[in-house]
Design a protein around this nucleic acid. Structure first.
Length: 265
DNA sequence: AACACGACCTGGTAGC
DNA sequence: TGCTACCAGGTCGTGT
């Protein structure tokens, strides 16, 4: 479910709601280290940031809570001690009369959460490629990395060490917008095509962040409220919106890849 | 080094 | 209806 745009939407909502709040109790059923129960209570949430697909909640005392939603995770605030989903995995109760709590919900329980030191956050940061919507992500840097790789373009885009935050859906959509075949070895693309790919990464993600944030108003919303129009993902055998050719599905790295054989070369 | 594949989990759905 | 098989937006470890 969550790639960069969805994680960004989750972060923005959470930031509005919880920065400044104090955690009074933590319960971990699955998906997180038990250390969270010991280390989180008593700390104030100082920030909520996104790095790639990671959510980093800065806590007072120099720690950070690192949450990765993986395939089916979601993170949101409930109030009034109201019912939490059966698949809630982590509860962070917040101080105050409204009895609010941050919930990590994940039916598949694949999400992961850890308490990190400053040094560990730095290591996490170093292990990820540049943020595609930041100034760190330049055309030169992208082209240099791409030229040194023989990976199929799709797999390169999904590699978090190359660019942070792109997953299976947006890799497919980016390649469609750049009109590049997903199996093309990225290092053999002409400079003009690499430039087109770079531009497509930035524009697709920028558009998706915008529309996803508008659509995402609460728990589970982005699961159904997909307002970013997907041109190829999930559209096997349907006609291409540009040329009318039938969208194809292949498997790369064990994941489905959708593309238009007419538009993408 | 680069790739394929299984493991981690649960739930939804297409097809028989 | 009820079963089975496959599929799912991610990442890691292992093996070739």
């Amino acid at each position: 479910m969550p790639e960069l745009p969805e994680v960004e939407a989750v972060c923005r909502r959470l930031r509005e709601q919880v920065v400044g709040a104090r955690i009074v109790e933590a319960r971990v059923v699955r998906c997180g280290t038990p250390a969270i129960e010991r280390l989180a209570p008593g700390r104030r949430i100082e920030s909520v940031e996104r790095r790639g697909k990671h959510i980093l909640m800065g806590l007072s005392g120099g720690l950070a809570l690192d949450i990765h939603l993986r395939m089916s995770g979601d993170l949101f605030v409930i109030a009034g001690g109201g019912p939490s989903p059966a698949s809630a995995r982590i509860w962070l109760a917040l101080a105050g009369r409204k009895r609010r709590a941050i919930i990590l919900d994940d039916p598949r329980a694949l999400a992961v959460a850890n308490v990190l030191s400053v040094a560990q956050v730095e290591a996490l940061d170093k292990g990820l490629g540049p943020e595609p919507l930041s100034g760190d992500f330049t055309r030169e840097r992208f082209s240099d990395a791409a030229r040194r790789s023989r990976q199929p373009a799709k797999l390169f885009l999904m590699n978090q060490r190359r660019v942070a935050g792109i997953g299976n859906i947006y890799a497919a959509e980016v390649l469609f917008r750049a009109r590049i075949g997903p199996r093309r070895p990225i290092g053999r693309l002409r400079p003009s095509r690499l430039a087109a790919l770079y531009s497509a990464i930035v524009s697709v993600l920028r558009d998706a962040v915008q529309s996803t944030f508008i659509a995402y108003s609460g728990p589970g919303e982005f699961r159904d409220a997909e307002t970013f129009p997907l041109a190829v993902y999930g559209r096997e055998r349907q006609p291409c919106l540009v040329c009318g050719a039938k969208i194809r599905r292949i498997v790369q790295g064990g994941r489905s890849t959708y593309f238009c054989p007419g538009c993408q070369r």
